[in-house]
Amino acid sequence: MKGYNRPLLLIAVILFIDQVSKFWVKLNMTIGQDFNIIGNKFLIHFIENNGMAYGMEFGGEFGKLFLTLFRIVAVIGIGYGLHYMVKNKYHRGFILNVALIFAGALGNIIDSTFYGTIFSESTFYEKAVLFPEGGGYSSLFHGKVVDMLYFPLIEGNFPDWFPIWGGEHFLFFRPVFNIADSAISVGVFLILIFQKRYFKEEHEEKESVNSEVLED
C-alpha cells in the first residue's frame, strides 16, 4: 500500500477542497452573485453548467445524461489506469498528475450525479437548500456542475486595425471554473511539460530489466 499513499492523499485533498467550496457557494450565494477576492481580477462568481469543464455545454437532457455516464466510465478507466501505474511503479510525478486528473473528474461527477437530488435549485434570487423537503431540483445523474473561480484579468477593445475583431470588446480570462477543473488542467499540463522525463526514466528502467534478463 506504500505506493498508494501519496496519490490517495492528493485525491482526498482535492476532493475535499472542491466539494467544500461548492457546498459553500451553493448554500451562501445566488446565481450570478460575486465576491471580489483581489479587486476585480479575481472573483468568486457563482454559475452552474449542464456540460463540460469551464462552462462548455453538451446539448439537452439526453446529452446531459450521456455526459454524466461517460464521465463515470472515464473515471473508472482512469482509476484502473492509476492502480496499474502504481502497481508497476511508474514515475511518481506521472502518477501524481494522473491522480490530479482522476480527482478532478471525480469531483465534477459528484456534482452531476448527486447535486440534483440533494440541493434545491439555485436562482438569481434564492440560495439553495441542502436536502429540501420537496426533494432536489432534478433527478439522479442530472445535477449541474458548480463553477465559481473567475479571473477577468484583462478587459478592453481590440484596436480598429486588428483583423476580424477590430474594435470589438475582449475579456481575458473569460471562463468560470472550479477546483476540479483546475486539477484536471494542471495534471494534463504537467504531463505535457514533463512527458519526456516521465517516459524516459520508465524506458531506461525497462531496458535495465530486459538486459538483466538476457544476462541471466
Score class of each variant (00 low, 15 high):
residue 140 L to F: 13
residue 78 I to P: 11
residue 74 A to F: 15
residue 184 I to T: 08
residue 214 L to T: 09
residue 60 G to Y: 06
residue 205 E to F: 07
residue 109 I to F: 09
residue 100 L to N: 05
residue 63 G to Q: 09
residue 138 S to Q: 05
residue 131 F to P: 01
residue 134 G to V: 07
residue 11 I to F: 15
residue 81 G to T: 07
residue 163 P to S: 14
residue 178 N to C: 10
residue 62 F to N: 13
residue 79 G to L: 06
residue 144 K to S: 03
residue 90 Y to M: 13
residue 156 G to N: 02
residue 35 F to M: 13
residue 131 F to E: 01
residue 152 P to G: 12
residue 171 L to F: 03
residue 30 T to V: 14
residue 51 G to H: 05
residue 205 E to M: 08
residue 165 W to S: 14
residue 93 G to W: 04
residue 177 F to L: 05
residue 49 N to V: 00
residue 35 F to Q: 08
residue 114 F to S: 02
residue 92 R to W: 10
residue 182 S to P: 12
residue 209 V to F: 11
residue 88 N to F: 13
residue 69 L to D: 01
residue 77 G to F: 08
residue 142 H to N: 02
residue 162 F to P: 03
residue 120 S to C: 01
residue 37 I to T: 04
residue 91 H to F: 13
residue 69 L to S: 04
residue 91 H to N: 15
residue 169 H to T: 12
residue 25 V to M: 12
residue 199 F to I: 12
residue 36 N to D: 12
residue 71 R to D: 11
residue 150 Y to A: 11
residue 209 V to A: 11
residue 163 P to R: 14
residue 108 N to Y: 02
residue 179 I to S: 03
residue 80 Y to V: 15
residue 138 S to A: 14
residue 36 N to A: 14
residue 181 D to A: 06
residue 100 L to C: 15
residue 172 F to K: 02
residue 142 H to L: 09
residue 158 F to Q: 03
residue 19 Q to V: 10
residue 165 W to C: 10
residue 180 A to C: 09
residue 45 H to N: 08
residue 101 I to K: 11
residue 80 Y to L: 15
residue 55 G to D: 00
residue 184 I to L: 14
residue 165 W to F: 15
residue 121 E to Y: 07
residue 201 E to M: 07
residue 157 N to I: 01
residue 205 E to L: 08
residue 133 E to C: 00
residue 35 F to C: 05
residue 195 Q to W: 06
residue 160 D to T: 09
residue 12 A to I: 00
residue 2 K to N: 12
residue 126 E to G: 06
residue 22 K to D: 09
residue 131 F to Y: 03
residue 116 G to E: 12
residue 191 I to V: 14
residue 22 K to A: 08
residue 163 P to H: 15
residue 52 M to L: 12
residue 102 F to R: 11
residue 127 K to D: 07
residue 151 F to N: 07
residue 214 L to C: 07
residue 87 K to H: 14
residue 82 L to W: 13
residue 174 R to Y: 12
residue 110 I to E: 04
residue 72 I to F: 14
residue 187 G to E: 10
residue 152 P to R: 10
residue 203 H to A: 12
residue 43 L to M: 09
residue 165 W to G: 04
residue 19 Q to W: 08
residue 20 V to L: 14
residue 36 N to E: 12
residue 215 E to P: 00
residue 120 S to G: 00
residue 160 D to M: 09
residue 30 T to Y: 00
residue 23 F to R: 05
residue 202 E to F: 10
residue 43 L to I: 09
residue 156 G to I: 03
residue 46 F to T: 00
residue 7 P to C: 12
residue 63 G to C: 08
residue 137 Y to I: 05
residue 195 Q to E: 08
residue 30 T to E: 04
residue 88 N to K: 14
residue 90 Y to T: 06
residue 214 L to W: 08
residue 29 M to W: 02
residue 150 Y to E: 06
residue 149 L to C: 06
residue 2 K to A: 13
residue 118 I to L: 05
residue 24 W to R: 06
residue 208 S to P: 01
residue 138 S to W: 03
residue 138 S to R: 05
residue 80 Y to W: 15
residue 74 A to H: 07
residue 87 K to W: 09
residue 63 G to E: 08
residue 172 F to N: 05
residue 154 I to G: 07
residue 171 L to M: 15
residue 169 H to C: 04
residue 85 M to L: 15
residue 9 L to E: 06
